[in-house]
Design a protein around this nucleic acid. Structure first.
Length: 598
DNA sequence: CCCCCCCC
């Protein structure tokens, strides 16, 4: 068995060129300490040259500890970057991010070829001309920086020709570095005032291939850099102060954070920087969120099916005036969830064109048994992001996904009724529910067996709290008798008559806006538009929801209309079935009925 | 040097 190594790759890579997926042999390894962390240094060979300054990304350490990556192994380096370390002089280091083991050491069993040790001064000009080599790094990266003025360097060529340092390598103990990083997120300018003084600041989240870090600019630096720093752009940044990050306040994966100082130099990277990754999302299908606990921090991507207007409220605890907007996101998992946006983010958000929205680091909140996502200050929200999942979702939504029935994870649960025992219609009748002076409430697992399509949606008063049906004045205006006013606009609201059945009987019920939206799987706005502009589709929608099963909570009370006493039953909430819960209830009643443990 | 991240 012979193994072919990428002869000459070490030389090309170490002299600044690019070599795609070099196949090299591991000749030895050594454990070193870096910032209190174990790092593995590999001695590698391409058959022609060996090189002892190959660092293994710490995530790969286990491959060595487990023996998987033993000496003489032949590996393909799938991903690497070149960094530099300062000892007595600048030294280039190859950091291996990803590798594939082509042949284990035991199988190879010997050193391949007769490699000689490579060193910096072996760099020959011939390689630079035959490869896509970048300009050779200047030996003293910081020497040029003093020539910049005001810290903002508009000509990136000075910095771009230099070697940059991986973010993961930054520490307070070393201040001669330049990073090449993408801005993932930038906060608004915030002011503070406390016993220690006052000021203003903004912060940004930066990332490169090696990791991420938060940087904050205070006062002067806040003014100086705020406009320049733009989300998604790549910058060369140097001369910041590093300090230990308070883990309490950050979700970024870095032990340190940076503070801009008067000496900080920032320069936009003008060339294509595909090597600097953009935000790394870890999207969770919306329907999976139902199983997650409160305070889970997660990423989602979905189409904004609807969004509320801005609501203003006063925080009880702080007395602060808050602005929020709720957007409903849906994805192809068939889940829907409410995302709450706050402050300026809420104000600028426009969901009217059903954009794809990507969210990184939102927090799962639970209120009255209903789950929703809430944005934190650190949450990144991107509207119409240029990522594959966004394009896929766009295609899905525009080609029928929009009419898919959704399980709304944030569906309201009747107050306090979440754990009420379920009843059947027969049991409700037996107990004469609704026949007393006060209304009775009960929950039931039932099937929607009929929907009354006539007048299921109406044009309601646009005022926040008034949901009165408007009178069409036939002149473009609508009159609200309750407000005694005419409006040019209106909001749609649902008032759905339906029949719910269970194995023991059925009941004519009425569902108002929120519960009807859950039952129809559409917003009142959408149903209204269909009713006015696409009667066929409207009819289909009302037809297709038949035989869907929900957990209903009813309010029932006997009422007399023209001498006839009838049970008036209102749907307080309709929830998609949580089958785990449903089965547990079933098992419980089987036990109770049979006296047998199951 | 901030560090609040909310409400029904």
């Amino acid at each position: 068995m012979s193994y072919s190594l990428s002869e000459g790759a070490v030389e090309i890579i170490m002299s600044g060129g690019e070599y795609d997926g070099p196949v090299i042999q591991v000749l030895g390894h050594k454990k070193i300490q870096s910032r209190g962390e174990d790092r593995i240094r590999l001695i590698v060979s391409d058959g022609k040259h060996s090189h002892s300054l190959a660092l293994l990304n710490s995530q790969l350490n286990n491959k060595v500890f487990s023996g998987e990556l033993s000496n003489y192994s032949v590996i393909k380096v799938d991903k690497y970057f070149i960094s530099s370390v300062q000892k007595k002089e600048e030294k280039r280091v190859m950091v291996i991010l990803n590798l594939t083991i082509i042949a284990p050491g035991a199988e190879v069993g010997k050193k391949l070829g007769d490699p000689i040790q490579w060193s910096e001064d072996m760099t020959s000009p011939s390689y630079a001309s035959t490869t896509k080599a970048e300009p050779k790094p200047v030996p003293t990266p910081m020497s040029n920086l003093s020539k910049t003025t005001a810290g903002i360097n508009l000509n990136s060529s000075v910095l771009s020709s230099q070697m940059t340092h991986p973010i993961a390598s930054l520490s307070p103990y070393q201040n001669k570095w330049v990073i090449k990083a993408r801005v993932m997120n930038k906060t608004a300018i915030r002011t503070w005032s406390n016993a220690k003084g006052e000021g203003k600041l903004f912060s940004m989240d930066l990332c490169d291939e090696s990791g991420e870090i938060r940087a904050t600019a205070f006062k002067n630096e806040c003014d100086k850099f705020y406009d320049m720093i733009q989300i998604d752009k790549v910058y060369y940044i140097s001369r910041c102060q590093l300090k230990t990050a308070n883990k309490q306040y950050t979700t970024l994966k870095n032990d340190y954070e940076m503070t801009f100082t008067a000496d900080t130099v920032v320069s936009e990277c003008m060339e294509e920087s595909n090597s600097v990754p953009s935000i790394k999302y870890d999207f969770m299908p919306i329907s999976d969120i139902a199983d997650k606990g409160p305070d889970t921090i997660l990423d989602v991507i979905g189409v904004c099916k609807s969004a509320s207007d801005i609501q203003e409220l006063t925080a009880k605890s702080t007395g602060k005036l808050l602005k929020k907007r709720e957007a409903t996101l849906v994805d192809s998992s068939g889940g829907a969830i409410t995302l709450t946006l706050w402050g300026a983010e809420a104000e600028k958000f426009d969901g009217s064109s059903n954009p794809v929205v990507a969210v990184k680091g939102a927090r799962l909140a639970e209120f009255n048994g209903s789950k929703s996502l809430s944005c934190l200050a650190s949450t990144i929200v991107r509207v119409q992001p240029d990522v594959e999942e966004a394009h896929r979702l766009r295609g899905w939504y525009d080609n029928g996904g929009d009419s898919m029935a959704m399980v709304h994870i944030s569906a309201r649960v009747g107050q306090g009724g979440g754990n009420a025992e379920w009843m059947t219609f027969a049991e409700a009748e037996e107990r004469r529910l609704g026949t007393g002076d006060k209304a009775d409430y009960f929950s039931l697992l039932g099937v929607l067996t009929f929907t009354f399509a006539d007048n299921a949606v109406y044009k309601a008063c646009p005022q926040e709290q008034c949901n009165k049906k408007l009178v069409d004045q036939q002149n473009g205006l609508y009159r609200c008798e309750k407000c005694n006013r005419e409006y040019p606009n209106y909001k749609y609201r649902l008032l759905l008559g339906a029949t719910v059945s269970d194995p023991t009987g059925d009941q004519r019920v009425t569902a108002f806006n929120e519960s009807a939206e859950v039952m129809l799987g559409r917003s009142a706005e959408e149903v209204g538009r269909l009713s006015d502009y696409d009667k066929a589709e409207y009819g289909q929608l009302l037809d297709h929801v038949k035989f869907k099963t929900f957990v209903f909570k009813f309010r029932t009370k006997i009422e007399t209309y023209s001498d006839e006493a009838k049970l008036k039953t209102v749907v307080m909430s309709a929830q998609p079935v949580d089958y785990r819960d449903a089965n547990a209830r079933l098992v419980k009643s089987i036990k109770a009925l049979s006296g047998v443990e199951v």
